[in-house]
Amino acid sequence: MRLEPIPAPGPARRFGLPALALAATAALGSLLALIAGAEPFGVLGLIAKGAFGSKFALLETLNRATPLIFTGLAVAVAFRARLWNIGAEAQLYAGALMAVLIGAGTPAISGPFLLPFMALAAMLAGALLLLGPALLKTRLGVDEVVTTLLLNFIMLLFVSMLLEGPLKDPMGMGWPKSEALAREARLPRIVEGLRLHWGFGLALIAALLVWLLQSRTTLGFEMRAVGENSAAARYAGMPVERTIALTALLSGGLAALAGFSEVSGLKGNLTLDLSPGFGYAGVIVAMLALLHPLGVVLSALFVAGVFVGADSMSRAAGVPTYIADILLAAALLFMSLAILLTRFRVARD
């Protein structure tokens, strides 16, 4: 077989195939439900209901989507420039660590500057954490996939060390968790009485800013050009190494905001289970969004919905929650194939 480019794909192809990919994901979900001994279509309904079916469910989904928007943006920005940042998990923890270092107990600064300072420090930590692998890539040709992945493990152990050492809450009954953040170090709720914090608002703003950066600025253009063809970009006189370094700073900073937002908006302290893999799920979020920053918001809501819905479905129908992870990984593969086939037709040799 070989792939023939389609000069002008029609709307049936452009929208039908992605829809088919989602339908295939749903079909797989029914099959898995059947294997787990549950009623196949009921399970899909329960997931949807658990994700969007009530005010409580919807708020839970928005809360879960918040870190996913940040990590999804981080991955989208990096992948667009072909910087394979798989280390959003580590950068998230770097951000969370800064939030706790500055905001826990009695913060050294107070007043309206505390929260912005925490956010900036978090971004800086995440940015620097990715700058290392990015420089190793551009200077020495060390593959950043492996270095960022390995840094995830190193970072988690580093956080574990601090939580059992200097950052350990003396009142924590021996649990490895940090002291709670001061009241003024907590992100306020968007609407009083509704369980949704400003981290979500910040995530939306971040998506908008990234979109503006990518579509309206020279740097955004350079990032895309480097990703599409770095040799051509170099030939056109673009500073390829500098662009990759700046991309790394932005991507790492965005992922770190996920950690800041989770600690300061939701949890109020740092534990080792702060992130159930938000960094890795960010890859799925970004790919389902076709690396578009505004699409990231939608796809983060979808991915969060599947996770939250599967939790609630699992309690009702007894199908293991891991069904969510299978469906999202499958959606990633189905969608990648579908998008390819919108532009190419399979022909026989």
Binding site: A329, A330, L333, S336
Partner: peptide
């Protein structure tokens, strides 16, 4: 992308 997808899957 495919490799990470397979790992997650």
């Amino acid at each position: 992308v495919v490799g990470l997808g397979i790992t997650l899957l």
